[in-house]
Nucleic acid binder design. Sequence first.
DNA 1: TAACTGTTCTATATTATATATAACACAAAA
DNA 2: TTTTGTGTTATATATAATATAGAACAGTTA
Lengths: 130, 130
Amino acid sequence: MQLSIDLGSSDQPIYQQIRDEIVSGIASGQLRDGDPLPSVRTLGAEIGVNLHTVNKAYKLLQRDGFIEIQRSRGTFVRAGDTAKNAAGFIESSGRRIQALVSDALSLKIDRTVLHHMIDHYYDELEGKGS
Amino acid sequence: MQLSIDLGSSDQPIYQQIRDEIVSGIASGQLRDGDPLPSVRTLGAEIGVNLHTVNKAYKLLQRDGFIEIQRSRGTFVRAGDTAKNAAGFIESSGRRIQALVSDALSLKIDRTVLHHMIDHYYDELEGKGS
DNA sequence: TAACTGTTCTATATTATATATAACACAAAA
DNA sequence: TTTTGTGTTATATATAATATAGAACAGTTA
């Protein structure tokens, strides 16, 4: 699978953008369990970024359980059965979120407010699980 | 109105946290149109932060139209008729967002994916307006 | 006048980000 | 074995972002 990563349009650090795009790829089903990721050097060369920057992104993804890094062999997606259903989630949730954003924007509510509300419920639910 | 700002729990810069908390305050109705904000020195002293850091947050809020800065007089909330309805939005949207997060989390979908989807629709809708 | 606004300026310190180069340890293929 | 390709580690450097500090300025208000 071809990994396309756009840089520069965001004000976030490069390693974060890489990480987020790969997470999105997994969630959308473009990246599936077992798929190999490009090596840190290859991906770095492709997008014009240093190998350490890619490595930093990979470390974050490993920490969060999205990928598995095998020394000397490569890195592979670890999505379990998540990816299959995740694509459906994005498909089915698009309208929901669009409606939510429309309501918020009509009231001039900043996007960060929605981010915070989402984070709040994430923290709440993840807190119960630990 | 008493402004309570928590720092340290986030990995975001202080001036962003201040900015976001005030936006949330406006959206939730705790801060209403015309309400005076603490001076940069007062708020800085309250939360243990330099005056320039607070000033930076205020400048962002001014740029986005959330507050009005009057030289030598003070800064005041400019929420229009937004704040009234915004409180209702948060009240009514809580369950919606909670359900959305539950679905996402059950699929191990990262919160950044939701952030991105929200940003996507924000950009889409704001793009039409310009 | 005196006290309080935001503003501007200079200066410094720390951290985050990103790159550069080299070398290492290990696995797989030639 | 040799070569190539992994991730990894180490050191070094450069730049930008973040935050603080102190002083002074211009204007408003009591």
